[in-house]
């Protein structure tokens, strides 16, 4: 059992949980993830480790409420226990070979670039960052990102913060203005990462993405998380989650993410039904 020590709503449907999991906190590094099950009947669902404290034995995750498990999680209170919480899984991000780095976070992807920004600041090479969201109220960790990065640009789909556009609009503007980056690290919904990769390919900028494939065990046992990278099959849980974005077959990844769409709708209906009834 893993106690939720703190629960904080950061934006609509976006909640940060600080969980007591000392064994995970002991070894985890930026870029790794955990898999949890909310209760004894729960599904195994992966989330990126967005912060941790080895001293306090805590691991933080940032969760967007999208379906059955994340709704169940949203119902839990501080002091409640998460049934299973395993990690750290996957490889940590290694950006040490790059000097000038641009972080691009879309929506919940900000949870993944935040620990990177912190790491890069500690390594004395603060990055630039573009953070995108549908509207201002969904922009997360604005202060933290600004504190960690050299330049931070915020973009909203609806322009509610005064900067209307997608992260790729800003990215193109920066590259056109002559900004030189050794690498772009982009994390967000699959279509966003695909758009970023298409653009950086055009400009010849090396790009790393973090793939959020569906998973079961997270240890290389089931193959559920597989994706094609440079025509080779890779497992996101053990080979990744980070890959060279220019080699990832995004069309296939997007297609694979839809396998259970119908069944998931059904589950959420059941959960909502239970609440309404």
């Amino acid at each position: 059992m893993y106690e939720i020590l703190k629960k904080r709503v950061l934006a609509e449907n976006i909640i940060e949980y600080v969980v007591f999991a000392p064994a995970v906190a002991k070894h985890c590094l930026a870029g790794q993830f955990i898999i949890l099950r909310v209760d004894s009947e729960g599904e195994r669902v992966p989330f990126t480790i967005c912060d941790y404290s080895r001293e306090e034995g805590t691991v933080s995750i940032l969760v967007q409420t999208v379906g059955f498990t994340t709704m169940k999680l949203a119902e839990m209170k501080e002091g409640d226990d998460i049934h299973d919480f395993v990690g750290p899984l996957g490889n940590s991000t290694d950006l040490s070979e790059f000097k000038r780095i641009l972080l691009v976070g879309g929506g919940i992807g900000t949870a993944v670039i935040l620990p990177q920004s912190k790491q890069l600041k500690q390594d004395n090479k603060p990055a630039d960052a573009i953070v995108g969201a549908r509207n201002t109220s969904l922009l997360m960790y604005a202060e933290e990102m600004q504190a960690n990065c050299k330049n931070t640009y915020f973009m909203t789909d609806d322009g509610s913060n005064g900067n209307k556009g997608f992260v790729t609009d800003k990215l193109r503007a920066l590259l056109d203005a002559g900004e030189k980056y050794d690498a772009v690290f982009a994390v967000g919904p699959l279509p966003m990462m695909r758009a970023v990769c298409n653009l950086t390919k055009e400009y010849g900028v090396h790009t790393i993405v973090s793939m959020n494939s569906m998973m079961v065990d997270g240890t290389g046992m089931c193959g559920c998380c597989r994706l094609s990278v440079g025509n080779e099959t890779k497992y996101a849980c053990v080979d990744g989650p980070e890959f060279d974005g220019h080699l990832v077959d995004f069309d296939e990844a997007i297609s694979r993410s839809r396998i259970y769409t119908e069944q998931e709708k059904d589950h959420v209906c059941k959960l909502r039904g239970k609440h309404n009834g």
């Binding site: 009947e41 729960g42 059955f68 079961v216 046992m221 839809r258 396998i259 259970y260 069944q263 589950h267």
Partner: peptide, 30 residues
Amino acid sequence: NLCGVYSANEYLTRVNLMKAYDKDAITPIQ
């Protein structure tokens, strides 16, 4: 890598460990 291709491990794990044989189970199986 098409949707609907499973390793036996994934297929059996979903059904046995995650109890997907039960239509009301949270973990889906096609």
